[in-house]
Amino acid sequence: MKTTCLTTLLLLSLTLHAEEKFPIKSGNGISIPSPIDKTMTEVRDGGKTVKIPAGMVYVPAGKFKFGESETRELPAYAIARFEVTNAEFKAFADATQYRGVPRYWKNGTYPEGKANHPVLFVSLNDCQAYCDWVSSKTGWKIVVPSAEQWEKAARGPKGTLYPWGNDKDSSYRGGKLKTHFNYNAVCAAWMLEHEGKTTTTYVEKSQQAGKQGHVEDITTGNGRVFAVTADGGVDAWIDHNTNTGFVNTQIYRDLVDKGGFTTPVGSYPTGVSHYGCHDMAGNAYEWTSSIIVATNGAERGQEVNDVRGGSWYSTGRSGQSLCTGEGRKAGSGYHSVGFRIAMEFK
């Protein structure tokens, strides 16, 4: 009988990396430059040429759809093509001797094989420190994007609910998931295929605490069995009333301790936004500088920072580009939250 150790992709040996080597490659082979590489690219905006950092895309000035029905307006700005990766954050941490490294890192570095995955367990304060470092080294005005900047970049000029359109557009047939983004069904499908017969234990807070069983037999209090549905949903991921489901097992905790079920940034090219941003749905929630009163999750009713785009942990609906009521406290890091940076023109 197999143990709760994760195999293949999830057995990640921890090694101390030498100096970060840039550029690194995204999941679809695009070069990601050093975060302080000053190389600029030229883009056309009407009759003028604008220079932006090589790792960013340009979002022109103008009005856009915000939320369900609002119209707002922003000046032009640039925003990162990808979420900040483990390798990029490590370059910052090494250069500044920063102490706030993510909790899943060991000996000051990220797990082997995750250089080009989004960094997680970073607080908004950590993200702002990273932005300050890039600004100081490049002379650019680098910021954590506002909710408005983030949403315009994700929804494009048509104001779609997802970067690619108005539907989640996922399906599950013959044990294979077809999707535009990394959300909880990706993790569930992989687990069922590769770890279905693995024995795991329900954790102490669960109503089934101490009970053991195969991953494919995980259940919730209402009797649902761990499975991916035909439309790309997930049964028995979590039941908050009974603390049962996949999230309340030891195999899930082991996964979080290794940085979660993230994928290399840029692994879903069909999910790219109109302006050229990858992973604005799924992989990692992204911090914004905007404050909301959360309407979902443990932060419900609290004044927190808006986080956008869903993650490897969250449902397909959470990948929508408008506010879904998710927020987090600025001083804490979370297993499903990372960030991308933006540049404002001075």
Rank of each mutant, 00 (worst) to 15 (best):
K2E: 10
T3D: 01
L11N: 14
L16A: 05
A18G: 15
I24S: 11
G27M: 09
S31Q: 07
I36H: 00
E42V: 15
K48R: 08
V50G: 06
A54Q: 10
G55Y: 00
G55W: 00
M56S: 06
V59I: 13
K65N: 03
G67V: 05
E68C: 13
K90M: 11
K90A: 08
F92A: 09
D94G: 10
Q97K: 15
G108S: 13
T109E: 01
P111N: 07
K114R: 07
K114H: 01
P118T: 11
A129I: 08
V134Y: 01
E148A: 12
E148F: 06
W150K: 12
A153R: 03
A154Y: 00
G156T: 04
T160R: 03
P163K: 00
G165H: 08
N166C: 10
K168L: 11
K168D: 02
D169M: 13
D169H: 12
Y172A: 12
R173F: 04
L177W: 00
N182M: 05
A185R: 07
C187F: 04
C187D: 02
M191G: 02
L192C: 07
Y202W: 04
Y202H: 06
V203G: 05
S206T: 12
S206F: 05
Q207L: 10
G210F: 09
G213D: 05
H214D: 08
F226N: 03
T229A: 07
H240R: 14
T244A: 07
T244D: 03
N248H: 06
Y252C: 13
R253H: 05
D254A: 15
K258I: 14
T270I: 07
H274Q: 04
Y275W: 01
G276R: 09
A281E: 02
N283E: 00
A284T: 06
Y285V: 09
W287E: 05
A294W: 02
T295F: 01
N296K: 15
Q302K: 14
E303F: 08
V307F: 03
V307E: 03
G309K: 04
Y313N: 11
S314N: 09
R317L: 12
T324F: 00
R328S: 02
S332F: 09
G333Q: 06
Y334R: 10
F339C: 09
E344H: 12
